[in-house]
Amino acid sequence: MNKYLALLALLALGGCATASNTYLADGQQGLSIDCSGEAMSWGKCYEKADASCAGTGYTIVGSDGSPAVMDRDKTLGVDVGNFNSRAITVVCK
C-alpha cells in the first residue's frame, strides 16, 4: 500500500507542461504552453514546445511568469508557499 502512495505522490509532483492552440493578434496560429508550479521549470516549457512542434523548431513570441523570489524572502533557503507561474507562446516553424 505504501508503495502505491509513494508512486502516486511522485506522479503528482512530476507533472507535465500543457499546450493549447491559440491565435495571435495577426491571425497566426500558435501554441500557449503553461508550465506553472513548483515541480516545473522554464526548461519544461521549452521541452514541450520542441515536442509539440515535432522537431521543426519554434519561435517564442511571448512569455509571462512570476519574478524570481529574493533570497531574503525564502524560508531556510527554499521558496515555500509561493506559486510560480510560467507560460510561453510559440509559433512552430
Rank of each mutant, 00 (worst) to 15 (best):
residue 1 M to P: 09
residue 6 A to Y: 06
residue 9 A to I: 13
residue 10 L to H: 04
residue 11 L to V: 13
residue 12 A to D: 02
residue 12 A to I: 13
residue 12 A to E: 01
residue 14 G to C: 08
residue 15 G to N: 08
residue 20 S to V: 12
residue 21 N to V: 08
residue 21 N to F: 02
residue 23 Y to S: 14
residue 23 Y to H: 07
residue 24 L to G: 03
residue 25 A to L: 09
residue 28 Q to N: 09
residue 30 G to D: 10
residue 30 G to K: 09
residue 33 I to K: 02
residue 34 D to G: 03
residue 35 C to I: 00
residue 35 C to S: 04
residue 35 C to N: 05
residue 35 C to G: 14
residue 35 C to F: 11
residue 35 C to L: 05
residue 36 S to N: 06
residue 36 S to Y: 09
residue 37 G to K: 11
residue 37 G to Y: 10
residue 37 G to R: 09
residue 38 E to W: 14
residue 38 E to R: 08
residue 42 W to P: 00
residue 43 G to P: 00
residue 44 K to I: 00
residue 44 K to L: 05
residue 44 K to E: 11
residue 48 K to W: 00
residue 49 A to W: 04
residue 50 D to S: 15
residue 51 A to Y: 05
residue 51 A to M: 07
residue 51 A to R: 11
residue 55 G to I: 08
residue 56 T to G: 08
residue 57 G to F: 03
residue 58 Y to C: 07
residue 60 I to M: 13
residue 61 V to P: 04
residue 62 G to T: 00
residue 62 G to K: 07
residue 63 S to L: 10
residue 64 D to G: 12
residue 65 G to D: 05
residue 67 P to L: 06
residue 71 D to Y: 08
residue 72 R to Y: 10
residue 73 D to V: 01
residue 74 K to V: 02
residue 74 K to Y: 02
residue 75 T to G: 00
residue 77 G to T: 06
residue 77 G to W: 04
residue 81 G to P: 05
residue 81 G to E: 08
residue 83 F to K: 11
residue 83 F to L: 07
residue 83 F to D: 12
residue 84 N to S: 11
residue 88 I to Y: 02
residue 89 T to Y: 02
residue 89 T to F: 02
residue 92 C to T: 04
residue 93 K to T: 06
residue 93 K to G: 11
